[in-house]
Nucleic acid binder design. Structure first.
Lengths: 245, 245
DNA sequence: CGACTACTTGAGGGTACTCAACGGGTGTGG
DNA sequence: CCACACCCGTTGAGTACCCTCAAGTAGTCG
């Protein structure tokens, strides 16, 4: 991180080389508000697998995902687990206004977070309706995504679930595929999967064996190619989409 | 609806005998703001089964659920359907800021709605941050509920799903059970089911036959009693809860 | 080299689905 | 009044899909 001062710039030093500044919640802030916010923030790195927010833990900080993927999970008493959401940069992390978390947040890959104390953000938000509006829009997007996923969980076959998962990741992770998609173009995609087979199974409501079998099936059908168990190549995303049900 | 004027009352006539006024989004409004809002609202009744918002339709109005139950559904191209949410009074209905709906809203029972044009609500909201805050909190609650339900869809057995559904309805519909629950008391519940077996199946990601079989099983176990296929009696809600997984 | 982890593959079984028949309630028409 | 159709829900028989349990492979680390 660059620490050098640049004369007369209104952008706080810490935020200057933040890659998600304009897309994330900070995008709605005026320079002086950004400065105020940046007094409370701090960047942290967490390695894959570390727990970011524990279930039932008191929430004292919020965060923005800067790089990497965060998985949100819920667990039943007997240990059955379900991934209820994935968050990518520049998503906001943390249950607003909640006293304690109702789920566990875990780093799926190595992640960088921009943390801010709960009280600090809520104070700035109270004084700045645009900020609440921005966060409200993210919440609405997450609700849309959760409901889309409910269809996948409730009504799709194992093959369709795995295809839908790969489609989701491809369109969220691969920056090229992401842009192509926004332009309405067809294309290929290539990415390192941020989740283990166990994570995928927990996301899809399947077992790891079933996930593995369906991946093999898609591989043999030529829909996907897999290298090293983690690197995926999708020669034709539109073809993959036809497997999503 | 009472139309008589009451001198010096600051509450708009139309809102005066609104039962959900204080619990719904209107609760945050000052009398003059409520008056402004009420100039645009109109109460409508819709009978069970009628479509309230069509998938992909342009959204021109929002609404508040006053009485009854609304179900939100999504469909795959081949007709497979999934209920992705249920809304009870005083829930807010409609995808805020969205140009078109991404789901279908249908009256599960006879419902009363308080409709308001999209532009009117958004104008009032822009001038009143407390209103957006209130709606944001409902969105957050709905997201919590959607994620809870993802666990049910992905990880529970058919029996647990049906028990979870009955538990959800019991704690949302029966006013007595609702209050007991808030007080942390155990108790019974009794209600008319607002959904058909087909609706339940679509909510749980099951078939109607499986739903029926599981209801029979719970009935034979004495966890529930059913009259007329629609009226349910739950002698011990805590006992039902142990079947939820 | 062995131990460990992550993933794949195989065999067998159980849960929920499919297809089908049946029962009860309601509305219609003779 | 009954006959009939129709809708909704239940029950039964057979099956398919996915899970469970188990073994096997590949990559990594000490």
């Amino acid at each position: 991180m660059s620490r050098q001062d640049i004369h007369n710039s209104q952008t706080p030093v810490l935020c200057r080389n933040c890659e998600v500044r304009h897309r994330g919640l900070c995008g709605v802030l005026e320079p002086d508000q950004l400065l105020e916010l940046s007094k409370h923030t701090r960047m942290v790195r967490q390695e894959a697998g570390s727990e970011l927010i524990a279930d039932d833990a008191d929430v004292t900080t919020y965060a923005n995902v800067m790089t990497g993927v965060v998985k949100l999970t819920k667990m039943l008493e007997d240990g059955r687990q379900q991934v209820v959401g994935l968050q990518f940069a520049p998503d906001f992390l943390g249950r607003l206004y909640g006293r304690q978390s109702r789920l566990t947040a875990e780093a799926a890959s190595d992640v960088e977070l921009c943390r801010i104390p709960k009280v600090a953000l809520e104070a700035i938000m109270a004084a700045n309706p645009a900020l609440e509006h921005r966060l409200h829009e993210q919440t609405l997007r997450e609700l849309d995504e959760a409901r889309d996923w409910m269809v996948t969980l409730g009504r799709k076959t194992a093959e369709e679930k795995v295809a839908s998962f790969l489609f989701l990741i491809a369109t969220h992770i691969d920056p090229v595929a992401q842009i192509q998609r926004e332009l309405g173009e067809r294309g290929d995609a290539e990415f390192d999967l941020p989740l283990s087979r166990a994570d995928i199974a927990d996301f899809l409501g399947l077992t790891i064996e079933t996930v593995s079998r369906q991946l093999t099936k898609l591989r043999k059908a030529g829909v996907i190619a897999v290298e090293n168990n983690r690197r995926f190549v999708i020669p034709d995303i539109e073809r993959l989409e036809t497997y999503c049900g």
